[in-house]
Design a protein around this nucleic acid. Structure first.
Length: 272
DNA sequence: CAACCGCCCTGGGAGC
DNA sequence: TGCTCCCAGGGCGGTT
């Protein structure tokens, strides 16, 4: 699924093709993804230039004169720049038709993604964006921040760092890997983790995300087969998906548990 | 308020 | 081989 590095890579990939272009049309072939696609969206963007694009957490925001087209890739979404003549594939739900004879095409088999319209004045208090935590790669996100925010909380540390109110963009895979790298046990209550451990954890989160972005969002991914289906480089993962296998550091057996309904794996010896 | 859980959805894999 | 079942996941929204 697209994690923050994939979203960032997607943005960098599409931006040169869309920035400054005029939007000829917005075409939706589906009424709703996670939420209904606003009927007024087509009218809002038609004939308007794309002024820019940015990322906030896993949300992509395409800037128009009167507002922002918000895109979320959910679990299975992708955006591609295609020629205007490109035939439709299964699950191609929406097109942003540009005046350079190209189309920004949204595909999402599981429909957990989102396409919304935010009028310019609402950007800063939009319900989806207002309460988001800091960007993990920003300077304000550090061990001290995690330490202060976690005091008195009984929620386990893995759920805490995956909560977008704490910090955005830390999905299940990167959370598991960062906890392993920093030697923090995922089930420990967030409020009981020391400042020093949070310092190491924050560094680890930045490292796994920045490393993935530097490699084009594909550190953990490998495109297998001709269908573009992503798989993760299992040999690069320390713990995710490896329950029952040997810890690469100590050789002990990795333990699998469910945390907040998500599969989680850790090394009982290396993570305390 | 914090914490938790159900739900949305489809493809793929396991099991029979 | 084909069917059924279950699982994966982010994050909202409702409940405790």
């Amino acid at each position: 699924m697209p994690e923050l590095p994939e979203v960032e890579t997607t943005l960098r990939g599409i931006l040169p093709a869309i920035e400054g272009c005029r939007t000829i049309d917005f075409i939706s072939r589906i009424e709703r993804l996670r939420w209904p696609i606003p009927p007024e969206l087509g009218e809002a963007v038609r004939g308007q230039p794309v002024l820019g694009g940015r990322r906030r957490g896993k949300y992509l925001l395409l800037e128009y004169p009167s507002g922002y087209l918000l895109l979320h890739l959910g679990m299975s979404g992708s955006l591609r720049i295609v020629a205007g003549t490109e035939p439709l594939r299964r699950h191609d739900h929406a097109d942003i038709v540009l005046d350079n004879h190209k189309i920004l095409r949204f595909n999402d088999p599981r429909r957990f993604g989102a396409i919304l319209w935010i009028v310019r004045e609402d950007l800063n208090n939009h319900p989806l964006l207002r309460l988001l935590g800091p960007e993990p790669l920003a300077d304000e996100f550090d061990g001290g921040y995690l330490y202060r925010r976690s005091r008195g909380r009984s929620q386990c540390v893995k759920s805490f760092i995956m909560d977008s109110h704490t910090v955005v963009g830390v999905g299940n895979i990167y959370a598991a890997e960062a906890l392993f790298l920093s030697g923090v046990r995922p089930l420990t209550a967030a409020g009981k983790v020391s400042r020093g451990r949070y310092q190491r954890l924050a560094v680890a989160i930045k490292a796994v995300l920045a490393g993935a972005i530097a490699r084009g969002g594909t550190t953990l991914r490998d495109f297998v087969g001709g269908d573009g289906k992503p798989g993760y480089f299992r040999q690069q993962l320390a713990v995710y998906g490896r329950q029952g296998e040997a810890c690469r550091r100590c050789g002990g057996v990795l333990r699998g548990v469910r945390i907040g309904g998500r599969a989680s794996v850790y090394c009982p010896r290396c993570q305390r």
